[in-house]
Design a binder for these strands. Structure first.
Lengths: 198, 198
DNA sequence: ACCTGAACACCGTTCAAGT
DNA sequence: ACCTGAACACCGTTCAAGT
């Protein structure tokens, strides 16, 4: 009984996640067989199951990766000097970097999330945390009077997420390329939601 | 060889769709076996396959039902005398009638849509049509000066759908009950997006 | 036409055996 | 520990046979 090799372990797990994501994007979660993942990752089923408990466990790993990236997009907003400008910047970065692959994988994951109560609860908690981060940034901007002070910061954060998420879902249907032409209208809507109307 | 009985055919197909939807909500599409659907619908596999070609065909039937209901929600807006009021009314009806079951089924369907190019193209076309209907209603409201004339009607329709869709997706994560408390903020945001700011 | 249920090819996962 | 591949229980779908 040798000791576990953390280097190898991390490398194999990453390779399996990458191979599985490729398969899931091509054929979807449930149409992808473990044999497909094994072929893509070039290893036997026994080896794969040495690193992941189950097919669902692989999905969980992909979700975790995605959650980390989403967090990195929202966090900088809290410290931004000009909230609206920082939000526009984040929207541009998101729209510019998101691919059809990302969108399909995200949809696949979202459906799977709902089925696994544990994963779903973690996703809901992550969503609440992102919203809290955004709400705090909005409240700060309200103190600096760059956002209408009468708005409820928490509700407004939810509105903004809904608006941006809705755009991403729409792009899932029409392709990532459909995102860019809508950006000016999206920013205009955000500006109207946030601005003091008088 | 008897003649096909349209009454029986329609009844059996509806029963199968209902049974399948129940199973899909409970366990998801890919974790539901045809045996499960057969048990829920109280028929043998042979009978079920007499009415539907495949598991994917059953999903297509459920999608078609959903598309019809979505259409019924948007169409009245085109003829409404007061656009914003009619839109608020539609939002209230939607938020008041949507259940966790609907949300889970919708997410399940959305993921499946992406995989089947035929279904996906039909859904994209239905989405474009709904948006056109809403855009026409917005243009009409602009002529009556109840909506800011400087807005692009098509982009604004896309924004409104994204906002409402985003809320529904969020409710998928947090439960349908999370929808109601957000309604005032949602309507306020819609009002700000549509209103002439001067 | 409508229905049954056994049968077929295939899937996720396990496990004895190797290094 | 890490890896293999045969084996097991189960799945979607088909089909010969019944009414």
């Amino acid at each position: 009984m040798r000791l576990r090799d953390p280097q190898l372990n991390a490398a194999r797990r990453a390779a399996i996640l990458e191979a599985a994501a490729n398969c899931f994007v091509r054929q979807g979660f449930h149409a992808t067989s473990m044999k497909d993942v094994c072929a893509e990752a070039k290893m036997s089923p026994g080896t794969l199951y040495h690193y992941f408990r189950s097919k669902a466990d692989i999905i969980a790993g992909i979700i975790e990766d995605e959650r980390r990236m989403a967090d990195e997009l929202v966090r900088p907003l809290a410290a931004a000097p000009d909230f609206a400008a920082a939000l526009f910047e984040a929207v541009d970065v998101l729209a510019g970097s998101v691919t059809d692959r990302d969108l399909v994988l995200h949809a696949e994951i979202s459906a799977e999330l709902l089925r696994q109560p544990q994963l779903r609860e973690r996703a809901a908690a992550a969503d609440r945390q992102s919203r809290d981060t955004l709400a705090a940034a909005i409240a700060e901007a309200q103190r600096a009077s760059s956002v209408d002070r009468r708005l409820n910061a928490d509700h407004t954060a939810a509105i903004l997420f809904a608006l941006i998420d809705g755009h991403l879902w729409n792009a899932t249907l029409h392709g990532a390329a459909a995102l860019a032409p809508r950006l000016p209208a999206l920013k205009q809507a955000i500006a109207r939601i946030l601005a003091d109307p008088e």
